[in-house]
Amino acid sequence: MSSREAILSAIRGIKLEPKPLPEIPEFGIQGEIEATFVQSILGNKGEVLSQAEFETWLTASNHPKLISRSTHFSDLSTISLPEDPHQLNDLDLAILDGQFGVAENGAIWLEDADLGLRVVPFIAEHLVIVLNKKNLVATMHQGYERIGSATSGFGVFIAGPSKTADIEQSLVVGAHGAKSLRVVLI
């Protein structure tokens, strides 16, 4: 007998009482959606910028290797997307469009099409996600409603810069992934 069969038949052999699958009610949030979202991102050690603030920041900073896949800032790329993700090791900045953001925790949803290469938001030293204010939802429940039955091969909720607290519980931003997250609300 294959292990598959062994496991499945072991389960079949157990008398299990039926248990109904509950429906999930609509849960919302108490506060205003945009303000809550901004608070969440700040709490996650990210920043929220307006388009103008972002543009000022970008001119003042120096990012030799930059990839922008945002439709709002399509001409900013200094390099094109390579075939091999390893070549992105020294990527300074990635600018991506997020599909929607979740107010209760600041999580922003991105899929393969938004990323180009899956490694982009992780390997970039700094990450900017551009989000339309219209695309903010209250909780993860509305988030998954938005995702629906989408069939992207990969999707990710990103909520802040990479961080760790593994040394004596002191929070350090910039573990393996992006050292900063800026969310541009348009």
Partner: peptide, 11 residues
């Protein structure tokens, strides 16, 4: 409120 990276692997 949520982990930073919540990756959904489908294919």
């Amino acid at each position: 409120p949520v982990t930073n990276y919540n990756s959904h692997f489908r294919s």
